[in-house]
Amino acid sequence: MIASGRLPPPRQPVVRLRGITKTYRIGREIEVRALRGVDLDVMPGEFVAIMGPSGSGKSTLMNVLGCLDAPDAGTYELAGQTVASLSDGALAAIRNRHVGFVFQTFNLLPRLNAIENVELPLVYGGDGRDRRPRAAAALEQVGLGDRLHHRPSELSGGQQQRVAIARALLNDPSMILADEPTGNLDSRSSAEILAIFQRLNAQGKTVVMVTHEPDVAAHCRRIVRMRDGVVAHDDPVAAPRRAEEEIAAGIGAAE
């Protein structure tokens, strides 16, 4: 097993993908080759944006990265461990310890309040003893210290997404995967989310984020562009924009 929640040694990538393919079959005849051989390395502490036209395989790639879906072929090493051919239970443990997901649609449980949603990863693994205070601390970190007992329906979209981020942080995962986290948010809320990601990244957290918006991607330190199921371009961002400064200046991030 991978040492839980620890950062891997400096020179070892968090993610190492080689020749990853994924084909969806609809009925007997139609095949959709969503991924056609993706090679990608992500080093610890990176903040990567994945861009590309609709249908280019970004979400499929994220699902593979997060062990929510298994590739058809290729190798995937997560924090030094080969992930292919792991059992369902082992994959669940990896999702629990090594991956923090943030979705476009927030995906909070509607019946639970903020703190109960955030502590969910600790219900399924890790040390559950002090999970209340830890969940409260995570909510504090994303600026929701005063909304601990609100249900998702009592929170704004931006607040819900921040609850989701707090949940993703709880088990101190090796990386945070965010699939269009700002897709459903206005520019102000988007800037706040990006500010949180930048702060976490500054603390050493690895973040991989899918986005359609160049303005959002400009806050990352590296942009991976996909096309037709492969990585088409992979460029560093010379001078990432600072979301916190933009908020202070009163400008929305994606305007």
Partner: peptide, 16 residues
């Protein structure tokens, strides 16, 4: 169904 998906995404095993 969605709740089940969410729970699985945060680490719930089949047994859970």
């Amino acid at each position: 169904t969605r709740e089940i998906g969410i729970r699985k995404a945060v680490g719930a095993r089949r047994g859970d």
